[in-house]
Design a protein around this nucleic acid. Sequence first.
DNA 1: CACTCGTTACTAGTTCGCCTAGGTTTGGGC
DNA 2: GCCCAAACCTAGGCGAACTAGTAACGAGTG
Lengths: 156, 156
Amino acid sequence: MNAAEKVTSPHAADVLRELHAYRAAEEAMRRRTRNSMKMGENDLAALRFLLRAQGQGRVVTPGMLADHLGMKSASVTVMLDRLTKSGHLTRGAHPTDRRSIAVSATSGSDDEVRATLGEMHRRMLGVASHLDQDGSEIVRRFLLDLATAADGVATA
Amino acid sequence: MNAAEKVTSPHAADVLRELHAYRAAEEAMRRRTRNSMKMGENDLAALRFLLRAQGQGRVVTPGMLADHLGMKSASVTVMLDRLTKSGHLTRGAHPTDRRSIAVSATSGSDDEVRATLGEMHRRMLGVASHLDQDGSEIVRRFLLDLATAADGVATA
DNA sequence: CACTCGTTACTAGTTCGCCTAGGTTTGGGC
DNA sequence: GCCCAAACCTAGGCGAACTAGTAACGAGTG
């Protein structure tokens, strides 16, 4: 038995505290954004998904949004009604499948999202850039282990 | 101009990807837990808050829960009705203020939460323990910078 | 003591968002 | 040409949070 297994480092708790503080800060920031845009969680996630896909020239259908957000297609329909009414997106004809529909974000919505989440992403990229090669390797390993730990927790 | 400012490290994007993966994993784990307990986001957060305070011998009132969860006191009342009905907590007399109420978690609810979130916490502590002193310093700095970045994003 | 004002929690009624169930149009294999 | 599956929409219901208004109590003041 080596020391790392048996004794929890005195710094471990500090690291978790810092992790928790970060999560709280990010969550608060997302809530501010949602309040500012007067939207729910899924509405904003849908817009982000849409803008990212649009940036890669991919067509987005309501069904794809349902899969990505984990909601039923009927709920997506209502969400699209909502976001269309608020001027954030439009429904268009699907290029190949006439049963389906092509959803696209309006330019205004694009600007609005970029102004907040884009800024956030830039800042985070800046933070990550300050890591040297060893540092980024350590952080990546840490995050990977955390994700693995979360995945491994049984639902009981 | 130094390289770290001008050129974003090729690893920076990888770190952010890993961060996103971790967030997704943790979120999924929390959702599994909530589904397993048949509770909403706030219900579980309230229980955690309650258990933590109880462990420190502090009395929790509905008003404190409202502040901590960011909801209105009326909504807390209904939530307490819900959680009382499901056997997760009880309302008792407040020791000093007879307008108020002392909320306390049942032992069954204690066990239930510990079985899942406690397990998660142990695993995370294990991951953090594998960092040496330099490593934990690097990670903490990284997380602190991220939190600062999130805090600094204006709502526009 | 009597009054007043703020605090604390609750009740009633509304809103918002997601779900289930069922219907309509189109795609694609036989 | 037929039939089943796929994709979206409509209708109705439910859960959870909000607003507004009520009742009981605490604390300070004349």
